[in-house]
Amino acid sequence: MTPVEAVVLAFVVGAALATALLRDVLASIIAFAAYSLGVAVVWLLLRAPDVGLTEAAVGAGVTTVLFLLTIAKTVRPASEDLFVDVDPTALGVSALLVAALGTTLSALPPVGSSSAPVATSRVTAYYLENAYHEAGVKNAVTAVLAAYRGFDTLGEAVVVFAGFVGLLVVLDRGVLA
């Protein structure tokens, strides 16, 4: 692990803890935005710029604005405490969940390993070899997203569309006027 990766990971864990423990909701939301930004950098370090871009735009950007908009409509309880009182039961459940998920860590190949299943898979080799002349685009991620898996992506677009319609129905509005 390079020093840069270590610093970014420490920042992400610290921001996550701050999000969970800070008492003031506004401070918690800001910590959550910092967490998302840190995770976006982690994706970049893992050579996944497409995912990093999404995390930065949605996680750190839009989600934060939507959260802020929501708490602007609420009343902040005045309190001198900086941190919440941790519920031991909830802490125990969280620790158990992390431990259960942690057991799978040893099964993961090291980052960048040439023997990782995703690198040796025939599907990956096919995409890397044929994506450019079959789909005509240089970004293999886009080739898979919009050409090889185009029908799935249409489904995703329809999910976003359905979310928008659902919003109008929940708010009981015909148009956002």
Binding site: V62, V65, L66, L69, T70, E134, A135, G136, V137, T142, A143, A146, A147, G150, T153, E156, A157, V160, F161, G163, F164, L167, L168, L171, R173, L176
Partner: peptide, 27 residues
């Protein structure tokens, strides 16, 4: 194929930007 993919991307972009702005005004 290239132009088809780019048109599809523009379509996705229009849906997503509309939905994001809609969520904002809705909230």
């Amino acid at each position: 194929s290239k132009y088809g993919i780019e048109l599809v991307e523009v379509g996705i972009g229009i849906v997503v930007s509309g939905a994001v702005v809609g969520l904002f005004f809705g909230l």
